[in-house]
């Protein structure tokens, strides 16, 4: 008696998309983005491939989404299509359907890469002693910070591949993508422990790239 779910065909084409979340939409979580994207794909009439099962889902997989509240110019996802569409056309049609602060920047045919590091730009403002604090942290073997929300300690030092003060109140850091994931605000907290003048509250974070090494 029980119905069997309809089997869905595998995707005809897999696209890799790089997209940005900017401005006020940096407050969107990756689940928020996923909902927005699925609806934009439908409005744009892009033929999505679906998973099989009683409750079919679009075949979209997200790679290392940036935390809620942080902007990004380098979010990636893999999108399965049910029919051939030129990657550029997918990008154009999506951009016409997405809210302004979500932008598709790149679309290519391909499967999800295994990124190993992520580069972040922090706007920390002019803080005297920042360069020294950065050198001090890079020279240390260990730096443990506390994630209050999770009530957990995080060791950040091994994840820091590179960190550099760019002037103009900007700080760039490249962090290893690992488990547990070290976030740029964890590193900022480690810096603040060495530099009490560093005010964490107003720091803005933007991911600039994800890298394959």
């Amino acid at each position: 008696m029980r119905r069997q779910p309809e089997q869905q065909p595998p995707p005809v084409l897999r696209l890799l998309l790089r997209y940005a979340k900017r401005g006020r939409l940096r407050f969107a979580s990756h689940r928020d983005f996923a909902r927005v994207l699925e609806r934009a794909l439908r409005r744009a009439g892009i033929p999505m491939a679906y998973s099989s099962g009683f409750s079919p889902h679009p075949r979209i997989s997200y790679l290392n989404s940036a935390p809620t509240g942080m902007a990004s110019e380098a979010e990636w996802l893999e999108l399965g299509l049910a029919a051939e569409v030129a990657p550029d056309e997918v990008a154009d049609r999506l951009n016409a359907a997405l809210p302004e602060d979500f932008r598709v920047l790149e679309a290519v045919v391909g499967r999800r890469p295994e990124f190993t590091t992520s580069t972040w730009l922090l706007d920390v403002g002019q803080v005297p002693g920042l360069a020294d604090a950065v050198s001090e942290l890079l020279a240390a073997d260990s730096a443990v910070v506390r994630r209050e929300a999770k009530d957990r300690d995080v060791e950040v030092r091994p994840a820091i591949v590179k960190m550099e003060v760019l002037g103009d109140g900007k700080l760039e850091m490249t962090l290893r993508i690992g488990s547990p994931l070290v976030r740029p605000d964890d590193v900022a907290q480690a810096l603040a422990r060495r530099l009490p003048a560093l005010n964490l509250q107003p720091i803005s974070y933007t991911r600039v790239s994800q890298n394959l090494d």
Partner: peptide, 19 residues
């Protein structure tokens, strides 16, 4: 408002800008 949103739960609910 914007700096306050970084300190609250589900800040995206306040930003508007929806389709």
């Amino acid at each position: 408002l914007e700096p306050l949103l970084a300190q609250v739960v589900r800040p995206v609910q306040y930003v508007g800008g929806e389709v």
